[in-house]
Design a protein around this nucleic acid. Structure first.
Lengths: 252, 252
DNA sequence: ATGATTTAAATAGTCAGATCAGTAGCGCTG
DNA sequence: CAGCGCTACTGATCTGACTATTTAAATCAT
């Protein structure tokens, strides 16, 4: 629980943590944060691998493996003699849940939320339709279990959000389209970071959401694609409304 | 100078790269192929890093960096003492264009094409709508240039497909939604691998596609979202029809 | 002086061997 | 038989060196 945020804080030593545990993921995350925070803007060069090793107090091996991960996600590009340069934002694999998780804490701007909501608008109704046709009985049961978690969350917004996320994940998986399932993972990651926003919505609004989610479960059970689409659109209307409320709240 | 041929390296180097070029990307691709081909099924363990190094004739460093890339894309998971195991297919980052490019040559099954077409059905009409509202004049001009490439391709199916892919890439980017742009890259990758299928469609069908694409350009110029959506749906109808034709052709 | 060519330097890429740390499986103890 | 440590195996990290590539400076010919 006692996390050491370790703000990089380019203090020349900064590596008081003597141990040598799994360190590569931490270095990867730190480098990603330095990119998203603007410390290394797009087009700029990172320090050399040796210098990065000194800065983070790890060997060049760890730095290289971390950079390979970042390169695999389109954040950087390494070339001999040139060094490692930060790619243009268009090349960032923002679809990757991990990239979004690294990105969200820094640029939690409304634009990203809008983009995610637009994406949901596009695919969630179709996902619900497909799920109505393809969901297994087990998936429908899991969906109802998640709904029950939402309905029974009471005053606990964290439990509500967790069940909400689980609901969407199951729904996207029930579309039996691997691409949609992946996008569902992405949306879940986005929802997790908007948890503080959803936590502010009132109880009766949450009850409205519960009712809309219930409609989805019923539609799937009846194999009614049209009803599933309608319920999905209703959920999105509520989500859009809550997002607007959260924005207003934030601007005050 | 003095080349050190080192190992036999039966890598079947058809090219003239007698030197020691960048090998890590090749090893990564080879390992990915071995996974997609079923040589290493989901849940199974890969050989140890040392054994893999011997097998591919490279140092353990290269093997580790390649595995890190695969792990970043959700294909494998490495743990001490356990080894490196192939993740379940649900965890594969099929959204990643590189993963799709590795995947396509092996499992070019219809299911994947259907999934991609479903995804296009979901988002392309909305992308067209958004592009009608947000596209810059430059983007519209680029779109028309790509259309001109399609119209002027004549009998050359390769030139036609290349322009077709460029058209969609520009359109998705013109939606000014980073998520859609990413998905556009994915779809382009998928289209590239269905090139041989599209190459078989007749000239008049291609002319129909040209006309539908023209409608999109016109709608964007008029900032007519509804017309853009309609034209996008028409393109998808044609694409679906051609996909059915390609399937029939393949099954004969 | 100018342009082309050669040389040098800097950096990522690769290699080799060693040590560290975590865990599954086995043997030991009770 | 149950619980507990021991050991071997494997990935994780470290170290230090060398190679290959490419930019940029330096040199040479015109």
């Amino acid at each position: 629980m006692n996390e050491t945020p370790k703000k990089a804080d380019e203090a020349t030593d900064a590596r008081e943590t003597a141990r040598r545990p799994r360190v590569m993921p931490d270095v990867t995350k730190a480098l990603a944060s330095d990119i998203f925070s603007g410390r290394y803007p797009a087009g700029s060069s990172l320090p050399t691998e040796n210098d990065l090793g000194v800065e983070y107090g790890v060997s060049r091996t760890v730095i290289r493996e971390a950079l390979k991960v970042l390169a695999a996600k389109g954040l950087v590009l390494s070339r001999p003699r040139i060094g490692t340069v930060v790619c243009d934002q268009d090349n960032w694999n923002i679809i990757d849940p991990q990239v979004l998780a690294w990105h969200a804490p820094h640029a939690l701007d409304d634009k990203l939320f809008d983009a995610i909501l637009e994406t949901r608008r596009a695919i969630e109704p179709l996902v619900a339709e497909l799920a109505a046709a393809r969901a297994t009985l087990q998936e429908i049961a899991d969906l109802e279990a998640a709904w029950r978690g939402m309905a029974g969350a009471g005053e606990d917004p964290v439990a509500f959000s967790r069940s909400d996320i689980a609901f969407h994940q199951i729904l996207y998986a029930a579309s039996h389209n691997p691409i949609f399932r992946q996008i569902g993972n992405l949306i879940d990651t986005g929802l997790k970071f908007s948890l503080e926003a959803t936590a502010t919505i009132s109880l009766d609004r949450r009850m409205e959401a519960v009712a809309a989610h219930r409609e989805v479960v019923e539609a799937l059970r009846m194999r009614d694609a049209e009803a599933a689409r309608g319920a999905a659109n209703r959920i999105l209307d509520l989500a859009a409304r809550d997002l607007v409320s959260a924005k207003k709240l934030k601007n005050n």
